[in-house]
């Protein structure tokens, strides 16, 4: 060691790595490297999944394509409150509300419904805020992950398309599950209570 100047004291020098002459030869390391490679090559257990044939198991709280839920009578559950549209950070939801047809007994207990409900699936960032904002749990993100299309137009989902996603996921049993899912939101609860008493635990839609 030479004399240490002030500057050198601020530098901490690490220990010289101790290598023996065997390691200085490179060859043992080369051999062990080749052995590792050959062992992996002969193990014959690929870590990869053959995707189109074997589909991955998507967790139930995955945020994929949206769907619009139906209520028990098959109507769109959405009450056109614009909460999701307001919450959406990507501005991909566009709702046009309309008063529910009063003379139709089917729409008896509803004031408002969405005349159109479009989601631009290309603009959406799949953050799930619409789902959290929804007071009646009408909009949900499913676990459908392989969303593709040939044009931009067909990736803009309208109300019918979103309802069909609901039908499809209900049939295939790919129902989304949220961790904060319990009783429905307060607005929905009040509506349900007024109609048919206290909601059952779990999914209001099913009960």
């Amino acid at each position: 060691m030479t004399t240490k100047s002030k500057r050198e004291k601020t530098v901490k020098w690490g220990e010289e790595p101790k290598i023996g002459w065997m390691e200085a030869m490179y060859l043992p390391a080369v051999m062990s490297g080749v052995a590792t490679a050959v062992r992996h090559a002969l193990s014959g257990k690929p870590m990869t999944r053959q995707y189109p044939e074997v589909e991955p198991e998507i967790p139930a709280n995955y945020r994929g394509v949206h769907r619009l839920n139906r209520d028990e009578e098959g109507r769109v559950k959405c009450v056109a409150c614009y909460m999701c549209q307001t919450a959406c950070p990507a501005n991909c939801i566009e709702i046009i509300a309309a008063p529910a047809p009063k003379d139709d007994p089917h729409w008896e207990n509803r004031d408002k419904y969405p005349a159109t409900f479009t989601i631009d699936e290309l603009r959406c960032i799949y953050c799930g805020m619409c789902e959290e904002a929804c007071p009646v749990d009408a909009i949900e993100l499913t676990s459908i992950y392989d969303l593709t299309g040939m044009t931009r137009e067909e990736m803009i989902f309208d109300k019918e398309k979103l309802l069909s996603v609901f039908d499809k996921t209900i049939q295939s049993g790919q129902d989304p599950v949220r961790t904060n899912r319990g009783a429905l939101g307060p607005a929905s609860e009040e509506a349900e209570t007024a109609k048919q008493g206290p909601p059952p635990p779990g999914r209001g839609r099913k009960g």
């Binding site: 060691m1 530098v11 901490k12 020098w13 690490g14 010289e16 790595p17 290598i19 023996g20 002459w21 200085a24 030869m25």
Partner: peptide, 28 residues
């Protein structure tokens, strides 16, 4: 190989700042 190794070690010991082309003496 032994002689090469010895040579490298003496080089490192005599002048740690040269660091044998940057291999040894890593600053922490």
């Amino acid at each position: 190989m032994i002689s090469t190794y010895q040579l490298q070690r003496t080089l490192n010991q005599s002048n740690p700042r040269v660091m044998n082309g940057g291999i040894r003496g890593v600053s922490v």
